[in-house]
Simulated scan of single mutants.
Amino acid sequence: MSDPMNNPRGNPPPPDEPRKGSSPLIWILVLIALIAFAWYFYNRNAGTEPINDLTPPAATSDAMTPAPSSPVEGASKPSREKARAPKKVTRAQPRDRDATLLNQLAPSYPPEAFRAREEGTVVVRAQVDELGNASDVEIVRRSGSRTLDRAAMNEVRTSKFNPAIRNGKTVASSVQVPIEYKLDEQ
């Protein structure tokens, strides 16, 4: 007799375990790798193309210009060629300036100084780099209160500046910033 478990082809019966396939995580990683690969080549090729100038090319062939009908007209041709030539556009260089605060300071009054009813003006000097960041902050004139002096230094240290410009380029410079702490009497 024939056994129902035996196949006529002689293949073993399928196992009871589910078939193991690729994990979805592997497919997601492969997809991310493909996207990164495409991004790399897109960005690599995007910067290599030359930027085309928008000015029209100057006419160099004589076939486009009509022949002069008289000798007087032919004599004036070079002056017309100069008039047709595109003018070179020059960009204005920014004027020299010192470093300035990007936004007006509105320092927060330190609670300790507020409770002690301390007031004063602090003058702080800072080195401003080419990007407008302050460093090497020091006090030039003290207010008479350590709390106000420290608060003023922290305000200047975290402030953003317009960098100084010399000969059309941003340069590092030094700037003095006065900060006034005054209690509002109402």
Rank of each mutant, 00 (worst) to 15 (best):
D3F: 12
D3C: 08
D3A: 12
P4F: 08
P8N: 02
R9F: 10
P13M: 13
P14S: 08
E17T: 13
E17C: 02
E17S: 13
E17P: 02
K20I: 11
G21L: 09
S22F: 13
S22T: 06
I32A: 14
A33E: 00
A33H: 01
L34Y: 00
I35D: 03
I35A: 15
F37I: 05
A38V: 02
W39V: 10
W39N: 04
Y40V: 14
Y42W: 13
N43P: 02
N43G: 12
R44E: 08
R44S: 11
A46N: 07
T48Y: 04
P50A: 08
L54H: 01
L54A: 00
L54N: 04
P57G: 07
A59E: 15
A59F: 11
D62Q: 12
T65L: 15
P66L: 10
P66N: 14
S70D: 12
V72S: 13
E73M: 11
G74P: 01
S76C: 05
P78K: 11
E81Q: 14
K82G: 09
A85C: 01
P86Q: 09
K87F: 06
K87Q: 12
Q93I: 06
R95N: 10
D96G: 10
D96M: 05
R97Y: 06
D98C: 02
A99N: 09
T100V: 11
T100N: 07
N103E: 11
Q104Y: 02
P107R: 06
S108R: 08
S108P: 00
P110V: 04
P110D: 04
E112W: 01
F114H: 09
R117W: 06
R117F: 09
G120F: 12
T121I: 15
V122N: 01
V123F: 04
Q127G: 04
D129P: 12
A134W: 08
S135H: 15
D136E: 15
D136M: 12
E138W: 03
S143R: 07
S145Q: 04
D149Q: 07
A152F: 03
V156D: 11
S159H: 07
S159N: 06
F161H: 05
N162M: 03
P163Q: 10
R166A: 13
K169M: 05
K169G: 00
V171N: 05
S174I: 10
V177L: 05
P178I: 05
E180A: 15
L183K: 02
E185H: 11
Q186D: 04
Q186H: 07
